[in-house]
């Protein structure tokens, strides 16, 4: 079985608009999250469930949005409540999967940010194929800017070799059983310090392989990002 876990737990604080979380803002007259879900929907014959993990305050709204957009065919989706942090939210999704489905060692899950609506077919395809092959993969792009490392935030400690550094995107995809084990092996404090699941794997010395991402697969987090996203769609050919 293959699952997609769409992380939509954000409340949009960085967007400067606390009334409407960023995943619900409109892009070309459609909520950002719906663009993302439609791309995953193309894989509906391969995916057992597309699970949307959302902030508890926005659960009903997310359900309505999906029901209206996908009309008669919304059964592939399940909307559930997320947690406080990103890892908590992933854990909510994993718990839902393990409680509702018979998990085997080959089951995989793709975790993806709802606010990356430009995700391509090819990225999803490679996540599925490579998660099956390797067990854990992270989508990354080359680091374009020079990476500067500073211990104190005031002066440069070192400048690492850029060619070996990548910028992390999503999806991050895993074998479900291994992910459950990983979560169970970490203390709460470790979970809270790790910003994403790939980092959790790092703490456990587990290998995570790379999938080539795309610059277009950027995260819409700030008003600037939203302006860029709108501009990209306005210049459509």
């Amino acid at each position: 079985m293959k699952f997609a876990l769409i992380l939509a737990g954000g409340t949009g604080q960085r967007m400067g608009n606390v009334e409407m979380p960023k995943q619900f803002l409109l892009l070309n007259n459609k909520a950002i999250i719906l663009h993302t879900l439609e791309k995953f929907y193309l894989f509906k014959d391969e995916l057992t469930k597309i699970i949307v993990v959302t902030h508890p305050n926005w659960l009903a709204y997310t359900q309505d949005l999906i029901r209206k957009n996908f009309e008669k065919d919304s059964s592939i989706f399940e909307v559930i409540k997320g947690g406080e942090t990103r890892n908590d939210t992933v854990l909510c999704g994993i718990n839902y999967i393990s409680q509702n489905f018979e998990i085997t060692k080959d089951c995989i899950v793709l975790t993806h940010d709802a606010v990356r609506p430009f995700i391509s077919y090819q990225i999803i395809r490679e996540n599925i194929d490579k998660a099956i092959q390797y067990g854990a993969v992270d989508t990354v792009i080359d680091s374009i800017d020079t990476i500067v490392y500073s211990e104190d935030g005031n002066e440069i400690t070192s400048i690492p070799e850029r060619a070996k550094y990548y910028q992390g995107q999503t999806p991050q995809s895993f074998k479900v059983k291994e992910l459950i084990v990983a979560f169970s092996q970490l203390a709460k404090v470790q979970m809270d310090t790790a910003t994403d699941v790939a980092k959790l794997y790092g703490l456990l010395d587990k290998s995570v392989y790379l999938v080539k991402g795309e610059q277009l697969n950027f995260k819409i987090t700030t008003p600037f990002d939203l302006t860029v996203a709108k501009a990209l769609l306005e210049r459509e050919g």
Binding site: N28, K30, L216, L233, E236, G237
Partner: peptide, 9 residues
Amino acid sequence: EIVTQHVEL
């Protein structure tokens, strides 16, 4: 150049 276009189902 890569451009993005909206596709409806």
